[in-house]
Amino acid sequence: MSDKKAEPYIKFRCKDVRVHYGQNEALHGIDIEIPDNGVTAFIGPSGCGKSTFLRVFNRMNDTIEGARVSGSILMDGEDIYDKNLDPVLLRARVGMVFQKPNPFPKSIYDNVAYGPKIHGLTTSKAEMDHLVEKSLKRAGLWAEVKDRLKSPGTGLSGGQQQRLVIARAIAVSPEVILMDEPASALDPIATAKLEALIDELKERYCIVIVTHSMAQAARISDKTAFFHMGDLVEFGPTEMIFTNPGNSRTQDYITGRTG
């Protein structure tokens, strides 16, 4: 961050992004550039549109009845809302971790292997075993589950489940991982583990995370975007947002006067 000479590579370029749910406009024209390799945090009061905006990047809004997205969203310069682009392929490149851990009610192994299997990423069982192991290792879960890969993923603790879901996302080799309040259902220790993991993963992946915890945003993110009632109020390096916000609404929010 400190060296401003090397312009960071921009992963997503968004111009005038609006999302409607039926008649109701949830996002009122967002312009933002999200850098590659690093953690970008979205903060803001409940209902301001953080989740909605996050779902723009992997087109999960497409699956919501009545949701419409307009504006331009370029990923590596390519319009991800292009008619010819299949959202299925986009979602292989842009993984997602949800607020509530949602492993499949299958074995730990099958949870991780599912993505590679449907995309045909491996050709042999040995290759798959290797990929599952690699993904679980990257998600920091391997040591805990290596002896019980066949037991159900839903039998793990909340924090383990969340890391399993991350392993599941990693297994298809995404470029971006979106996380929507991934730690909100976890206890402090599991949260700390998850944060450490995010810190490691950011070397390899572009991570966008929604969080309600100011402290968490301050700890793990490189850039922070503050949303308020469907608008992007402020976006900049995390240090700056937290120490010297340019907008009074940001100031009020991070100091706890609104929320």
Binding site: F98, N102, P103, Y114, I118, R168
Partner: peptide, 20 residues
Amino acid sequence: SITNGALSVGASHVQAVFHH
């Protein structure tokens, strides 16, 4: 959340329905 999980790793809608 299960369907969303499947979709988020790039399963098609049909796959999400039939596999999960």
